[in-house]
Write a protein that binds this DNA or RNA. Structure first.
Length: 494
RNA sequence: GGUGCCGUACCCAAGUGGUAAGGGAGAAGUCUGCAAAACUUUUAUGCGACGGUUCGAAUCCGCCCGGCACCUCCA
């Protein structure tokens, strides 16, 4: 089965075929954050989802250019001019220049994403760095008759673009009768959206334009930056479902009218995070920031938790749910650790010399079927929950194999490679081996061996009181767990 | 009012025509000095309700009930 992805434009799953005639290059644009606050778990779901998509495309050997913007121009909170610019609002609260706010929260965003093991975009263009490009698009749209100036602002004339509404499946007539707020008289039609806004003198973030001092409309930055770095038509545009309308609808309108070409081949939308069944969002204030969550949970557990549901499903957030995931994740990682101990790649056990793998009569171990399951699941619109289910099945079989003691080094290597490729490179939930093997850890390993040998002696003398005391103290004081197995004692740190 | 989405065990969550994945929790067992880990078995004659299509439906169609999202800034 070839890679199939759900395209919001057609509302069905389609086979993925890159625009590139050599079939090699793939251009991806994902709507980035507006940087006026710390990121929350909703951002994590969105960017982890697209991280998987990028990683998998690269796994399939596509040459991916991944662009994700940083929105650092403030956009109005309301429909009318009374609404305050969110960047400006935050800058007033923190008593800092808007650009300082943008810089601070951009860094905060990248920090959080790095912590979640999200691969950075190849290009992270800032909206404020592309004012000229945005103005050019607005000029083109005016020239072609798709936009009009009104009192220092420029609006897109929705009535000139018959396909407006094709992404979100709505017609202009429908939304006109809706519950819309009373709109400004500057517009010809209520649905017309701002390409450029006139700035009042107190508006700090403003630029010169052919229409006077102002600032760009929200939607036009994505059109300008995607065009600049990925071309007039590109492969994949992603974003949260809440951006489908009006944001992406307007992007399509601007870009297709300006260029006279299709904007995007595949539109992908991730679903949202809910809390008690309600959408988590900044405006509702029911969000938990990632920085707070990282204090309670291992960030990789969070990533694992997100990937246990499909990107197009909603994910209900609760600490209980994450705790459950954490236990499952730990189980999975235990297997990986044991495999690596067996390969002598990681401390924890007694070392390879004491746990020599047998060299004859290995149980046959078939990995091909798991690889197939992995590909099938990922090719079916990036079904990560199925991949994780497969990993648990795989892990059970590996544990059985390990328990039999009848395993060759080659088998362990093959298993480790599979874990590293699928769980590591593609899902990003299994850390690379030797990652923490610093000198202090090596030393710790040696100290633990002394404890284990001492305790072994006590155990052989049946001095259970003392051997249990060592185990208890290590656990209570240092969070180190000793596990007595058939082939000796192993230790692990929580 | 318009446009969509969802409802699967105690909890989370895949599956979208071929007889219910996976994780957590619970129960029993194997191993073991004990503990832990691991493994085995087990927990939905049923996928919101009712009809219909079909040899066959959680999956398709209709209707009803319940929840959510978008139509206004949001990932």
């Amino acid at each position: 089965m070839p890679l199939t992805i759900y395209n919001t434009l057609t509302r069905k799953k389609e086979e993925f075929k890159p625009l590139d005639e050599n079939g090699k290059h793939v251009g991806v644009y994902v709507c980035g954050p507006t940087v006026y606050g710390d990121s929350h778990i909703g951002h994590a779901k969105s960017y982890v989802s697209f991280d998987i998509i990028i990683r998998y495309l690269r796994y399939l050997n596509y040459n991916v250019t991944y662009v994700q913007n940083i929105t650092d121009v403030g956009h109005l909170l309301g429909e009318t001019n009374e609404g305050e610019d969110r960047m400006l609002k935050q800058s007033r609260i923190e008593k800092k220049h808007p650009m300082e706010i943008a810089e601070y929260y951009t860094r905060s965003y990248f920090e959080d994403m790095d912590t979640l093991n999200v691969v950075r975009p190849d290009i992270s263009p800032r909206a404020t760095g592309h004012i000229i490009e945005q103005i050019e698009i607005v000029q083109t749209l005016i020239k072609k008759g798709f936009a009009y100036e009104s009192n220092g602002s420029v609006y897109f004339d929705v009535s000139k673009f018959s396909e407006y509404g094709k992404l979100s499946n709505r017609t202009i007539e429908e939304s006109e009768t809706g519950t819309r707020v009373e709109t400004r008289s500057e517009k010809k039609f209520p649905n017309d959206f701002a390409l450029w806004k006139r700035a009042e003198p107190e508006h700090i973030m403003q630029w010169s334009s052919p229409w006077g001092k102002g600032f760009p409309g929200w939607h036009v930055e994505c059109s300008a930056m995607s065009m600049k770095y990925l071309g007039e038509t590109f492969d994949i545009h992603g974003g949260g479902m809440d951006n489908q309308f009006p944001h992406h609808e307007c992007e399509i309108a601007q870009s297709e009218c300006a260029n006279g070409k299709p904007f995007v081949k595949y539109f992908l939308h991730n679903n949202l995070v809910t809390v008690n069944g309600q959408k988590m969002s900044k405006s509702l204030g029911n969000f938990t920031t990632l920085k707070d969550l990282f204090k309670k949970f291992d960030p990789i557990v969070l990533r694992f938790f997100i990937l246990q549901s499909h990107y197009r499903s909603t994910l209900d957030f609760s600490e209980e749910a994450i705790s459950s995931s954490a236990k499952g994740y730990e189980k999975l990682l235990n297997t990986v650790k044991k495999v690596r101990e067996g390969l002598g790649l990681e401390g924890g056990g007694l070392g390879k010399e004491e746990r020599k793998p047998q060299t004859t009569n290995h149980k046959p171990f078939e990995i091909t079927n798991y690889k197939l399951q992995f590909m099938e699941a990922m090719n079916d619109d990036f079904n990560t929950p199925q991949v994780i289910a497969m990993l648990f099945d795989f892990s059970r079989e590996v544990n059985t194999l390990l328990a039999s003691g009848n395993v060759s080094k080659e088998q362990l290597q093959e298993i480790d490679l599979f874990f590293s490729e699928v769980g590591g490179n593609v899902l990003g939930i299994i850390p690379k081996e030797n990652e923490n093997k610093t000198t202090s850890i090596l030393k710790e390993d040696k100290v633990m061996k002394v404890f284990i040998k001492l305790r072994e002696k006590l155990k052989s003398e049946k001095l259970w009181l003392f051997s249990d005391l060592i185990r208890k103290e290590l656990n209570d004081e240092l969070n180190i767990t000793l596990e007595d197995g058939k082939e000796g004692t192993t230790w692990k740190k929580k």
